[in-house]
Deep mutational scan, measured.
Amino acid sequence: MSGNGNAAATAEENSPKMRVIRVGTRKSQLARIQTDSVVATLKASYPGLQFEIIAMSTTGDKILDTALSKIGEKSLFTKELEHALEKNEVDLVVHSLKDLPTVLPPGFTIGAICKRENPHDAVVFHPKFVGKTLETLPEKSVVGTSSLRRAAQLQRKFPHLEFRSIRGNLNTRLRKLDEQQEFSAIILATAGLQRMGWHNRVGQILHPEECMYAVGQGALGVEVRAKDQDILDLVGVLHDPETLLRCIAERAFLRHLEGGCSVPVAVHTAMKDGQLYLTGGVWSLDGSDSIQETMQATIHVPAQHEDGPEDDPQLVGITARNIPRGPQLAAQNLGISLANLLLSKGAKNILDVARQLNDAH
């Protein structure tokens, strides 16, 4: 009898209710805020589980004197976190989706994509230029951005401005803007500013005609071990179906173009009346040469937790077992079709030249 009692006690200790789920994140304040929001949602869904947040620095956090596009290494903000995932030191990792490459290392998958916040870019102005827009900034004003995508589009749109690289986390960039006289304004992701509670610093939100956004911008991705079915089931509740389908289309477009950090590629997606609209573009580094096109596809946005595919093969690095396969494939095909259209119009040449120029500098 006593033996059975011990077995029952052991089973209770090993039951999922007692389990601590370890969540990996970057150390920056924004990353911690984003991770806290994901953990809060998981806690609400699984009140019996405990969650421990483990923060670590990544290569991208450490190399702050070089433009991201020049470092010449993929997975700048993800490699150390993936290493911890691989060694079973954490069970899942919360990322900004735009930091996750469209091809993940073997053994990993994006197990959830959370509801997207505003994906557009924002302009934050130096205190002396508050009330201005990019259009009304004085001639030769210097605007800071760490992104080739932003610089290429904005140089084309605002030729009277000069664009220079600015690195560091959000706090560091804002301090550089406010305390030094080098920059009249800087460009940042609206979602990051909003998550930090800095709505009052948003001086201008850039519309798609001015600057399309990065693939996955404004959404959070939760990376897990691809074979860890328990954790895949656990994080599945975080999937937002519309965000998922938009981001599958965007990531398929980028992957098929073979774009990345070192080339200016941008997108804009919208879901309306059962249609998914995808606009994508590529630019030369100075913005003088560009190709942009829009395509659409009829896609039914499923309700969360309709029964999805059981075999769960990944699409552009994403596993969404609780979302039907048909809409996911339709979104992926839309991204591939748009990429093929741009490639047929000469996108590869623009991107190759951009890559060579970026590598040469």
Results as ranks from 00 to 15, higher is better:
37 S>C: 11
40 A>V: 12
42 L>R: 01
44 A>V: 14
45 S>F: 06
47 P>M: 03
50 Q>L: 13
51 F>P: 12
52 E>D: 12
57 S>C: 10
59 T>R: 07
62 K>W: 07
63 I>D: 00
63 I>M: 13
66 T>Y: 06
66 T>F: 09
67 A>P: 03
72 G>R: 07
76 L>G: 09
76 L>F: 07
77 F>Q: 04
79 K>E: 12
79 K>S: 14
81 L>T: 09
82 E>L: 08
83 H>N: 13
83 H>P: 05
87 K>E: 09
89 E>W: 08
91 D>R: 04
94 V>A: 05
95 H>R: 02
96 S>P: 03
98 K>V: 02
99 D>P: 05
101 P>C: 02
103 V>F: 08
104 L>T: 06
105 P>D: 06
109 T>K: 13
112 A>V: 07
113 I>N: 01
117 E>I: 15
118 N>G: 04
122 A>H: 04
124 V>I: 11
124 V>S: 06
126 H>C: 13
127 P>N: 00
130 V>S: 04
131 G>K: 08
132 K>W: 13
136 T>Q: 10
140 K>E: 14
142 V>W: 10
144 G>P: 02
144 G>M: 12
147 S>G: 00
148 L>Y: 02
150 R>K: 03
152 A>W: 10
153 Q>P: 11
153 Q>F: 00
155 Q>L: 11
158 F>A: 09
159 P>L: 10
164 R>V: 09
166 I>M: 13
168 G>P: 02
169 N>Y: 10
169 N>W: 05
169 N>S: 12
170 L>P: 00
170 L>V: 11
173 R>C: 00
173 R>H: 04
173 R>K: 04
178 D>W: 06
179 E>C: 10
181 Q>N: 06
186 I>H: 08
189 A>V: 02
191 A>H: 01
191 A>V: 00
194 Q>A: 13
197 G>Y: 06
199 H>R: 12
202 V>T: 14
204 Q>M: 00
206 L>I: 03
207 H>F: 08
211 C>P: 01
214 A>V: 03
217 Q>R: 03
218 G>C: 00
220 L>P: 00
222 V>D: 02
223 E>G: 08
224 V>H: 00
224 V>P: 05
226 A>R: 08
226 A>Y: 13
229 Q>T: 07
229 Q>V: 06
229 Q>Y: 14
230 D>E: 11
230 D>G: 07
230 D>H: 00
231 I>W: 07
236 G>S: 12
241 P>K: 01
245 L>S: 00
251 R>F: 03
254 L>I: 01
256 H>T: 14
258 E>L: 03
258 E>G: 14
259 G>T: 13
259 G>L: 11
259 G>R: 06
261 C>S: 02
261 C>Y: 07
261 C>Q: 03
264 P>A: 04
266 A>K: 08
267 V>W: 02
269 T>N: 07
270 A>I: 07
270 A>P: 01
281 G>K: 02
282 V>N: 04
287 G>N: 03
288 S>W: 14
288 S>R: 03
292 Q>T: 11
298 T>H: 09
299 I>H: 10
300 H>I: 11
300 H>M: 02
302 P>Y: 08
305 H>T: 00
306 E>M: 04
306 E>A: 15
307 D>H: 15
313 P>T: 08
313 P>N: 08
313 P>Y: 15
318 I>K: 15
321 R>C: 04
321 R>L: 11
332 Q>N: 04
334 L>R: 00
336 I>F: 10
337 S>L: 15
341 L>S: 06
344 S>I: 14
345 K>F: 15
347 A>M: 06
350 I>G: 00
351 L>A: 00
352 D>Y: 14
353 V>K: 00
355 R>G: 08
359 D>S: 03
360 A>S: 13
